[in-house]
Design a protein around this nucleic acid. Structure first.
Lengths: 209, 209
DNA sequence: TGATGTCAACCTGTATACATATGCCGCGAA
DNA sequence: TTCGCGGCATATGTATACAGGTTGACATCA
């Protein structure tokens, strides 16, 4: 019992989407994928069902799976929801973080100030992870993760980043951290929502900024 | 090609959970379910995978599926997340509902005032549906639905309702609607969060109130 | 009597076979 | 030339067969 083919294929497909190696709307035929991965259709079916559950694939007219095409309007709704949930997380963090956690968050921002562009992305993730941890809500954290996964094809299409965005992102982080440190949930929520909106706009208009 | 066995079985299992006919922790053996539903293991597998994705089942030590046991702490976290998301929905509704929608919501509350206990439950659903529709966020609506589904075993365990809860629920609805009508997102959010918390407490302590 | 080793039954993971429906392609007629 | 129809190829839905492993019981020995 190898026990894990489906999971492996699921991860492989997500990686392909992330790298842009799967075009939006691409057909995901069970037979072809089974042959390609050297397994039978059964684990492929499970992987595709999981992908559909993740919101990354949908069933076509012939019940066949196809990669979801990122609809701009739907993506805007997705980012809005991400902003609301991450805002709620920030508000909870402002209420619940311990002094040590607040200090650790401040420390992360110090690191961030002198980080080169290559290291910035990883630090950005750590900042958000620290806030998630401080919110004490595994349910909201899981929900956020699921929604962010659905933004993956969009991010894969718009990977262009302008240099100015990074500076603004840092400044937004500081505003969030300041509100959290001050224990102001409403300000933390608003700052986080502005941050997510800024990231969305940067991803949406990579050329015009 | 019948095309839908898995969906039927999935729905049947959810119905059983909802009716309390499946004990928490109950083993969900593929073979037994396949024989019971008169199908093969394949659609049963798909139904169980969907159930696990819904957060209603989890895999045991032998990779077998078992009904998730409702953990009080986890349920509290779940209701908190529901409160945050439904609060966000209420805040968005306060900003976005048209005048006609606000009037319709007020009309629902009028109906609610003179509803007998039997009709109240359906009206309660309509109130929340009206607010969801006014929020213009299908993503948050879907997310909320997914989380509420996970509270199902908990609600199945604690179906006791006291008469006082219904009166308080009506009053909470009025507070939410008033904030929405006034276009006050923050007040709408807080009122909705208080409403969800009240429902959770009523479900948690059905005897002590 | 208790402990341990072995065996058998069962359950999941995977592969494959079969049924069925759909889309495509070619052919014929208007 | 174009429209319509029929057959074929193929893909999914479902069923069943096979493989690997774990659990549990039962028998045997100290």
């Amino acid at each position: 019992m190898t026990a894990g083919s489906a999971e492996r294929i699921h991860a492989a497909l997500i990686a392909r989407i992330s790298e842009g190696r799967l075009q939006p709307g691409a057909a995901l035929a069970e037979t072809a994928l089974a042959e390609e991965f050297g397994v039978s259709r059964t684990p492929v079916r499970e992987a595709l069902q999981r992908l559909a559950r993740d919101g990354l694939a949908e069933r076509g007219p012939r019940r066949a799976f196809a990669l979801k095409t990122p609809d701009p309007a739907e993506m805007a709704g997705l980012f809005e929801a991400v902003g609301e949930i991450e805002g709620a997380i920030a508000a909870l963090a402002a209420r619940r973080m311990t002094e040590i956690e607040r200090a650790a968050l401040a420390g992360l921002l110090e690191e961030e100030r002198e980080a080169d562009p290559a290291a910035y992305s990883a630090l950005n993730l750590r900042v958000h992870a620290a806030i998630r941890a401080g919110a004490r809500s595994p349910v909201l954290a899981r929900t956020l993760e699921a929604l962010e996964l659905q933004t993956l094809p969009w991010r894969a299409m718009n990977f262009a980043r302008d240099a100015g965005r990074q500076a603004r992102s840092r400044s937004e982080h500081r505003a969030i951290a300041a509100a959290i440190r001050a224990g102001d949930p409403d300000a933390a929520r608003l700052a986080m929502q502005a941050h997510v909106a800024g990231a969305f706009l940067a991803a949406t208009r990579p050329l015009s900024e």
